[in-house]
């Protein structure tokens, strides 16, 4: 009931294009970030088999995904593509097991077709991080095959956005477009991606290594092998700020995101190794709190304007 109490004024605001600008969000955030992912993964695939060069290219590709991983709607969720880009969290070391199997199978299993059929856990950035950052990119042919496969997955996501999905969001209610019936539905889908990205960053990217006070789990940090855990959080927050800024006129959300981004800059703990130390842990928790605050402010500020009331049925549980 409370959700609707704020609607009368929200509806008036909704008529202003500044509140939910799907075109701006697509042109100035979604498509550039997806293009960047495709370009950086292609650059990684084109890098010669030199561990130093591959590490630099891997880091660029990994952070390009951190800046695009919230865009799970549409092409990235089809055919399990998001999981094929990065299989994480990996509770049972499925990536390690899948990679060992690929190595045992030998070069015959490293063709594009065979890789595309391999366990999703053995593909993508998780497997490449181990090979490039832990094994000096050996065996070379496997590293190149996996990076080619990664680039192909990212290219499929890029093509899906450019060849249909973005247009579907721009033309809600068009013939056969049951996915987006109104402009506010397309805006709501992007808003949901914003909230989900913030929740994932707080609960998973930060929450998994934090574990509990009595049971901190630093070894669970995303990209700990490449030392990119904190960089990934920062790249995600900067990208989510970009989405918020293009989607809506939301000054309080941007301020809250700026505070969270500033917290990442002050945090001198690249793989969250400090979560087991009470003093250092507090600083990671402070970052997590800042991200959650940004999420809650975005939910109120932008969600109210869009009239989004999530989960009438999904939360019912009957």
């Amino acid at each position: 009931m409370k959700l609707f109490a704020i609607l009368p004024c929200a509806v008036a605001v909704l008529t202003s294009p500044a509140v939910a600008d799907v075109d701006a969000a697509l042109d100035r955030h979604v498509l550039p970030r997806i293009d960047d992912l495709a370009a950086e993964t292609r650059a990684l695939a084109d890098t010669p088999c030199d561990a130093g060069q591959l590490r630099a290219a891997f880091d660029d590709a990994a952070l390009a995904w951190s800046a695009a991983s919230h865009l799970t709607l549409g092409p990235a969720e089809e055919n399990g593509r998001a999981r094929a880009i990065l299989f994480w969290p990996d509770e049972r070391d499925s990536t390690g097991r899948g990679l060992r199997l690929l190595m045992q199978q030998g070069a015959d299993a490293w063709t594009p077709d065979a890789i595309a059929r391999a366990s999703v856990a053995a593909r993508g950035l998780g497997a490449l991080e181990r090979l490039i950052h832990e094994d000096d990119a050996q065996p070379c042919a496997l590293t190149l095959a996996l990076s080619d496969d990664l680039a192909a997955t990212a290219a499929a996501i890029r093509d899906g956005w450019h060849d249909g999905f973005a247009d579907m969001m721009r033309t809600p209610g068009g013939p056969g477009n049951t996915r987006f019936l109104t402009e506010s539905e397309a805006a709501a889908a992007l808003f949901t991606a914003l909230l989900a990205g913030l929740e994932y960053t707080a609960d998973t990217r930060l929450g998994r290594p934090l574990g509990t006070f009595d049971d901190p789990r630093p070894a669970r940090a995303e990209y700990r092998r490449s030392g990119l855990s904190l960089d990934s959080v920062q790249a995600a927050l900067v990208s989510l700020r970009e989405l918020a800024a293009t989607l809506a006129d939301a000054p309080r959300t941007l301020e809250a995101l700026d505070r969270a981004i500033a917290t990442t800059e002050d945090l001198d703990d690249p793989v969250f190794a400090g979560v087991a130390d009470p003093q250092a842990r507090f600083r990671v928790e402070t970052l997590q709190t800042a991200v959650r605050e940004a999420r809650n402010i975005a939910a109120t500020e932008i969600g109210a304007a869009l009239g989004v009331s999530a989960g009438f049925n999904s939360a019912d549980g009957d």
Partner: peptide
């Protein structure tokens, strides 16, 4: 829950949350 109704005759949207 956002008011959408999809039928064989197309789609409509009503200002309600369907239960």
């Amino acid at each position: 829950g956002t008011g959408g109704v999809l039928t064989d005759h197309g789609a409509r949207k009503h200002p309600v949350a369907w239960d």
